[in-house]
Amino acid sequence: MIEAAMIWNEPNNKSHWDPEVDPDWSKFGEMAVLAGQAIAKANPAVKRVLGGISPIDASFIQRLAGYGVLDAIDVVAVHGFPLDWNLWNINEWPTRIDEIQAVAPNHELWVTEVGVGSFGAEEVQEFGVKRTAELLLGKVPRVFWYSLYDLPQAWGATTRHKEAEGSSYYRHFYMGLLREDGTPKLGLKAFEPYADRMGLMQWFHYQDHRLDDAVAWLKRLGVTKLRTGLSWADSFRPNALDWFDRQMEALAPFDTTVTFCFTPEHRGIASHHTSAPQDPAEFADFCASMIERYAPASASQPVAVAAE
């Protein structure tokens, strides 16, 4: 069920990794190396992807390389939202890719989140889908559009700098090709011609009511590549494995990149899902257990056929 395993999400974004707990990212480096090694031991056929960085910062990749992280992964990933948050022009995408490729020349580079919101106008998102496809398809092996659904207003966005973002915070709720109620936007029609080449990124929350409808939309669009997540923090909820099993079974038809992230509050140095864990080996164990459950090595081995 799993094509690739992503180690964390946006580790250089304080909404996802707390720099007060780990100011030099050495704890992240140690955790990522252990996770990469554990995933490879569980199934060497699963590609190991460094959590997509946001902002796109070559010096951050060089910092992690100094901790040995690049030796424990196969793919470097980036996230970009130039029409919503990033302070660069959408046409700079090829330059941004080249900057990272220059510091990780022996690794594949994937764009595991790219998106344009419809906060100002749906026509902006429609343009963004088309221009992103023109700039990135063929430039990198994987591109994942963020996202299929708008984030429900009642859930709130995962960010630790809401006030500093000002009105741009509300853009978090308008990134989907479908509205919260499941009705299509103009961007969906723009996405359709690229659906077999541009993947979709969709987080599914614990017991997410949208799972079955999302799968139906993905099949209808002809999407083959999907990125989603399995939360280490959620693994401590009641009946967590039942939910994980349901989610992964529903997503079995797709080539799936699964992101492993979110520290359980009781296992963090600080009591927050962005904290470095008290014991990084526990996160590595979680990654390995998920690979063993949903992408066991035996399932990815070719079946030997005896000669007649």
Score class of each variant (00 low, 15 high):
1 M>E: 11
4 A>T: 08
4 A>R: 10
4 A>F: 01
5 A>T: 11
5 A>S: 13
5 A>W: 14
7 I>P: 01
7 I>S: 00
8 W>K: 07
8 W>F: 09
8 W>L: 08
10 E>M: 01
13 N>T: 03
17 W>Q: 03
17 W>N: 02
25 W>V: 01
27 K>D: 03
29 G>A: 11
30 E>A: 11
31 M>V: 09
32 A>N: 11
32 A>L: 12
40 A>R: 14
41 K>L: 15
44 P>T: 10
45 A>W: 02
45 A>N: 12
47 K>W: 03
48 R>D: 02
48 R>H: 04
50 L>C: 05
52 G>I: 07
56 I>L: 09
57 D>F: 04
61 I>R: 05
65 A>C: 09
69 V>H: 14
70 L>A: 10
72 A>D: 13
73 I>C: 08
77 A>H: 10
77 A>F: 11
77 A>I: 10
78 V>H: 02
82 P>K: 00
82 P>L: 00
86 N>L: 01
89 N>S: 10
89 N>Q: 09
91 N>G: 06
95 T>V: 13
95 T>C: 05
98 D>E: 13
101 Q>E: 05
104 A>T: 11
106 N>D: 11
107 H>L: 12
107 H>D: 11
116 V>Q: 06
121 A>V: 03
123 E>P: 02
123 E>G: 07
125 Q>A: 13
127 F>D: 13
128 G>D: 08
134 E>L: 14
136 L>P: 07
138 G>D: 03
142 R>D: 09
143 V>T: 02
144 F>H: 13
146 Y>L: 05
157 A>V: 04
159 T>Y: 00
159 T>D: 06
160 R>V: 00
161 H>I: 02
161 H>S: 00
161 H>V: 01
161 H>M: 00
161 H>L: 00
163 E>Q: 12
168 S>E: 03
170 Y>T: 00
171 R>C: 08
173 F>M: 12
174 Y>G: 10
177 L>M: 15
178 L>K: 04
179 R>H: 14
181 D>L: 06
183 T>Y: 01
185 K>I: 07
185 K>L: 11
186 L>H: 06
187 G>F: 08
188 L>G: 02
189 K>R: 10
193 P>F: 01
198 M>S: 07
203 W>H: 15
203 W>T: 15
204 F>Y: 15
206 Y>T: 12
210 R>K: 02
211 L>I: 01
215 V>H: 02
222 G>P: 05
222 G>R: 05
223 V>W: 04
227 R>A: 15
228 T>W: 07
232 W>N: 09
232 W>F: 12
236 F>N: 08
236 F>M: 12
236 F>W: 12
239 N>Q: 09
244 F>K: 10
246 R>W: 04
248 M>L: 13
251 L>P: 06
252 A>F: 04
254 F>Y: 02
254 F>W: 01
255 D>I: 01
256 T>F: 08
256 T>M: 13
257 T>G: 06
257 T>L: 14
261 C>S: 12
264 P>V: 12
268 G>S: 09
271 S>T: 09
272 H>F: 00
273 H>P: 14
278 Q>F: 02
280 P>N: 07
285 D>Q: 14
286 F>Q: 05
287 C>Y: 09
288 A>C: 08
289 S>D: 11
292 E>H: 03
298 S>V: 14
299 A>W: 13
300 S>W: 06
300 S>P: 03
301 Q>T: 11
306 A>G: 05
307 A>Y: 07
